[in-house]
């Protein structure tokens, strides 16, 4: 995939816009997915994902062809998401508290095994709840959690994408995981 994409990028740099359509096709689902998990709604995710591809196109000459294109693209997309989140500033902390007290009596139902039964995984309602809880995470934890567990990227790659030291990425993942644990434990 990286080889094909680099070939296409060279064509794009020469000015061939059609080659870029192929690049978009290759990465649209991944980028859209990251944006959706970061922002929590389809409409905004589409808007930001499109913007990410647009910026990548405009700045394509500044992309170092020796590096991984997906890393660069994810960096653009996550930065745009983070900007958008900062502009919104929802009162998610209040929400988290309410959700927590609500579920207190469900404590006894926690499965001792962490594997999830099939039907539970597929429930749409559960999916929405999980997404809502991810959206409640502060942006700095949310981005690392999304990149690690939804895009399944390595810690090194995440550190490159977010332009953060590896140690910071690790700390944020630890804290993000703890925050999510608190939010999801009674689910």
């Amino acid at each position: 995939m990286e080889t094909i994409v680099k070939k296409r990028i060279k064509q794009v740099i020469k000015g061939d816009q059609d080659a870029y359509a192929e690049v978009v096709e290759m990465y649209k689902d991944k980028v859209f997915h990251v944006c959706f998990r970061m922002l929590g709604n389809r409409h905004e995710a589409e808007d930001i994902a499109q913007e990410a591809f647009l910026r990548a196109y405009v700045n394509i000459t500044s992309f170092n062809i020796e590096l991984k294109f997906s890393t660069w693209l994810y960096r653009i997309a996550t930065n745009l998401c983070i900007d958008r989140i900062r502009k919104k500033k929802p009162d998610y902390y209040l929400d988290a508290e309410v959700a927590g007290t609500d579920g207190l009596n469900m404590y006894s139902q926690i499965a001792s095994d962490s594997r999830l039964p099939e039907e539970e995984v597929q429930s749409l309602e559960l999916q929405e709840t999980i997404q809502r809880e991810i959206s409640k995470l502060p942006e700095k934890y949310r981005s690392v959690i999304v990149l690690k567990y939804i895009e399944e990227l390595s810690l090194n790659e995440i550190s490159e994408i977010l332009n953060l030291p590896l140690g910071t990425v690790k700390t944020r993942i630890h804290r993000g995981r703890e925050a999510l644990r608190n939010q999801l434990r009674y689910l």
């Binding site: 499965a111 999830l116 995984v121 999980i130 991810i134 567990y149 939804i150 999510l180 644990r181 999801l184």
Partner: peptide, 8 residues
């Protein structure tokens, strides 16, 4: 379990 939920 949190990880499993997020990954699901």
């Amino acid at each position: 379990r949190t990880i499993a939920l997020v990954q699901s």
